[in-house]
């Protein structure tokens, strides 16, 4: 019979023990610097601040303010709408490219194409956003070029300092995020499935619609989430190209924390933003499951 001691010795050599030991540094790090801070943000959202003094009595006041004051409501709604528009634009634009790389590019060139697509993502986001301001501006690259070419007389003004500019800039910034998951799900499709569909009498388009697209759907869903979630909290792009009508919730959170010294209000807005993002994402995932699952 194994004694308690030999049982313990065996456990220390087991998968469980080795795995837990190895995962613990990163897990503890994330616990201290993510779980605890997130909990703190939630706690702050129920407190209040008077200049620099934090009052730790429980209050719903911040949430009441967030719901009743039009400025917060409007910013939240606008953030959701802009993120939604960015998500749709990015995913719709990305799908044909991912399809091209997966189905039309020779195997040995695929890695190169993916590399080409990802490079812009790794260059400074700040500078890229600023360059869009330069491109889209009143005296910007686009307008001056079009005027020099004689295509327009007056500079186009609908493309800077408004939500359109924010959508264009963010769609550019998040393009690789959308392409990669779609590409991965397309790559995993067994090519003989398409041949089977054709063999069973489907047209090229029919095979795409009834086989390729449903199988690529998980990638499309992942792409949509991976674009939607971070964009709703974007700060740089609205500030640089959004103008007063293009600001988003992150700009308000920053203002509350660093300008108005109202951390509890900032925390409340952050919590609400997280809740809204999670709720929309969950609904989206549930809908896509129902739609794509076996019927």
């Amino acid at each position: 019979m194994a004694t308690t001691w030999t049982r313990f010795r065996r456990w220390t050599r087991s998968d469980s023990a080795s795995g837990l030991l190895l995962v613990s540094p990163a897990a503890l790090f994330a616990l201290a610097l993510l779980a605890v801070p997130l909990a703190a943000v939630v706690a702050f959202s129920f407190w209040s601040q008077d200049y620099l003094e934090i009052d730790r009595t429980f209050t719903w006041a911040n949430y009441r303010a967030a719901v009743t004051e039009p400025i917060y409501r409007e910013l939240m709604l606008r953030s959701v709408l802009i993120s939604g528009a960015v998500t749709i634009a990015t995913v719709v634009l990305a799908f044909p490219l991912a399809y091209f790389i997966s189905f039309k590019v020779a195997d040995r060139h695929k890695a190169l194409w993916i590399f080409l697509v990802t490079i812009p993502f790794w260059t400074s986001y700040l500078i890229r956003a600023f360059l869009w301001k330069v491109i889209l501006g009143f005296n910007g690259v686009l307008n001056t070029s079009l005027q020099t070419l004689g295509l327009i007389d007056e500079p186009l003004s609908f493309i800077l300092y408004n939500p359109n500019a924010v959508v264009i800039t963010l769609a550019h910034a998040f393009a690789p995020f959308a392409i990669l998951p779609i590409f991965v799900s397309l790559e995993r499709i067994d090519r003989s499935l398409l041949e089977a569909a054709r063999d069973l009498g489907e047209s090229r388009f029919g095979a795409f619609w009834r086989v390729t697209f449903p199988l690529a759907l998980p990638g499309v869903v992942a792409a949509a989430l991976i674009v939607f979630i971070p964009t709703i909290g974007d700060y740089v792009t609205p500030r640089l190209v959004g103008g007063p009508d293009g600001l988003m919730i992150a700009n308000m959170i920053q203002t509350q924390f660093l300008r108005l010294n109202n951390a509890p209000m900032g925390a409340t807005l952050a919590v609400i933003a997280m809740l809204v993002v999670s709720a929309i994402s969950l609904v989206f995932v549930a809908l896509s499951r129902r739609w794509s699952g076996p019927r």
Binding site: A30, L34, F44, I226, G233, Y235, A267
Partner: peptide
Amino acid sequence: IMLPLVLPEIIVAVALLV
């Protein structure tokens, strides 16, 4: 551990600051 990948950066920043 992978959560920061999908969390808006502003949330991470604010949480750490707090």
